[in-house]
Amino acid sequence: MVLHGSCRCGNIHLALSTDMEAAAFTPRACDCDFCVERGAAWMSDPAASLSLTVKNRDDLELQKQGSETADFWVCKACGTVVCVTADLNGRRFATINARAMDDRHSFQAPVPASPKLLAADEKQARWAKLWIGCVTVRDALSIG
């Protein structure tokens, strides 16, 4: 099954290939100021693969928050935070903002999460277990 999503203007598109049904996802609502202010709730499936497609790289902003070990993907054109990525041991991991997904109304209600209480190395170990471990990024140049 492939679940799709995007920023509001469509500049950043997400395609999550997963064996999970949309209703099986329980997003995690982070309690840090950045996520609370943006209403972000994070979903992932470690067995899934994620394809990120960016139409206009000039409208993509990567922001570091908290421990500054991960990048929040924000569309400068519409302000949507679509995902977070972290490069760990030569591999890119990601989690998706459930609110950027087309099937967001099918997901379970978000549950609270408090990763801000963890040290940077504890966060990275948690991400390696919970986040999507197969991430591909394409942009207008690679699309053709």
Rank of each mutant, 00 (worst) to 15 (best):
M43E: 01
C35V: 11
T95F: 08
K76T: 00
V84E: 12
R92I: 15
T95M: 15
M101C: 15
V36S: 07
A86L: 07
V84P: 01
A77D: 08
A86C: 11
L62T: 08
S44I: 10
W73F: 15
L50R: 02
M43T: 14
F72H: 12
V81L: 11
K55Y: 00
C75T: 04
C35A: 10
L88S: 06
D87N: 13
T69Q: 09
A48G: 03
T80K: 04
D59F: 02
T53I: 01
N89P: 07
A48I: 04
E68W: 03
C78N: 09
A41V: 05
Q63W: 13
P46Q: 04
G90T: 08
A47D: 15
W73K: 02
C75D: 00
C35G: 05
H105F: 05
V74E: 06
L62H: 11
D87W: 09
R91N: 04
R92V: 14
C83V: 14
R92L: 06
V36N: 11
G90F: 09
T69G: 05
T85F: 09
D45L: 02
W42M: 01
N97C: 15
V74R: 15
V36Q: 06
D45Y: 03
A48N: 05
E68R: 12
C83H: 02
A94L: 14
F93L: 07
A48S: 11
G79A: 06
D87G: 09
N89T: 09
D103V: 13
R92Q: 12
I96D: 07
I96L: 15
D87T: 07
G79K: 07
A41E: 09
E68N: 12
V36D: 07
C75Q: 10
T85P: 07
N89M: 14
Q65A: 14
D59S: 07
S51L: 06
T53R: 04
N56D: 14
N89L: 10
G39L: 07
D71T: 00
T85W: 12
G90V: 15
C35L: 06
M43C: 07
T80G: 11
D45T: 00
A41P: 09
K76C: 01
T69A: 10
T80M: 12
V84K: 06
V54G: 01
W42I: 05
L52D: 01
V54Q: 05
M101L: 11
S67R: 09
C83L: 11
C75P: 02
M101P: 08
V74W: 02
K64E: 01
P46T: 04
E61N: 05
Q63I: 12
C78H: 09
V36T: 05
A77R: 13
G66Y: 01
W42L: 01
D58K: 02
F72A: 13
V36H: 10
A47P: 03
C35T: 10
V74F: 03
E37Q: 13
D103F: 06
F93R: 15
W73Y: 15
V84T: 13
V54M: 02
E37T: 11
A98Y: 12
A94I: 04
R38P: 03
N97E: 13
V74I: 14
A70R: 08
V54C: 13
D87R: 09
A77E: 02
G66L: 15
F93T: 06
W73H: 15
V82R: 00
W73G: 11
R38S: 04
A94S: 15
Q63D: 03
R99T: 12
Q65C: 08
Q63R: 12
T95E: 14
A47K: 10
P46Y: 01
E61Q: 09
D71I: 00
D71Y: 09
C78F: 04
